[in-house]
Structures are given as C-alpha cells and as structure tokens.
Amino acid sequence: MSFWSHFSYAITIFLMVAGLYIVIARGNLIKKLVGLGVFQTSVYMLYIAPGKLIGGTAPIIDANFKVYSNPLPHVLILTAIVVGVATLALGLALVVRIREAYDTIEEDDILASDEGEPGGDGQRR
C-alpha cells in the first residue's frame, strides 16, 4: 500500500472535490452544470481505473493478447456518458427557462426575487 498504488484514487478524489466545490460555491447555474460535469468525469475515473490491468490491453478479443482490462465498467460508463449528456441538455433547457422567467441565472438573484414577491409576476409570464 504505497502512495503510487492509490494514485488513481487520489486523482479521482481531487476531481470530485473540485467539482463539488464548483457546484457548491458558484452561484451561476451554467457554471454549476459544468461543475457537475467535472464531478461526473471523476465518477468515470472511479469506475474505469480499477478495471485497468497493467500489461493488459483494451477488451477486444484478439489472438495475440492474453490479458484484457475489465470490460464491465466500460459498459456501465458508456451508458452513463450518454445519459450524462442528455441530462446536461435537460439541465441547460431548464436554465434557459429559468432565465426567461427570472431574467437572471444567478442563484442568489433568483432566491431574492422569490422572496421579494412570492408567487408574483416573476414566476409565470
């Protein structure tokens, strides 16, 4: 259990923490979505990295190779990526709608305008 044997986890955790920080600390909604993307990629790393075997190759069966990396995480992450971009699009659509309703995409302004006039003109146009 040296440091290098857990290096991939360190990268994963760094990315995850960075994504988390962006999501929590930034008020802009698009920025938040980008942070969510970073977080998501850290999860990809978390899945893919243990599947790698040093000396193995990509899981495409060939007579010349004996050792393959683990294909199962690849499958899971493959679906996760496409779902991720679909949800990203959905989130962006929501942001666009929010911007049309509130004229801002800053979280604080949205909260302020909600408190200012609850159920008022800000919500539906």
């Binding site: 496409v82 971009v85 659509a93």
Partner: peptide, 16 residues
C-alpha cells in the same frame, strides 16, 4: 435514437 435526440436538442437550442 441518440442521433435523433442530439439533433433535436441542437435544433431546439439554436432556434430558440
């Protein structure tokens, strides 16, 4: 499906 959804999303965003 994937290409259809991506294209549709692009159309929606670009034409908005």
């Amino acid at each position: 499906t994937v290409s259809g959804v991506m294209l549709k999303i692009f159309y929606m965003f670009a034409s908005r």
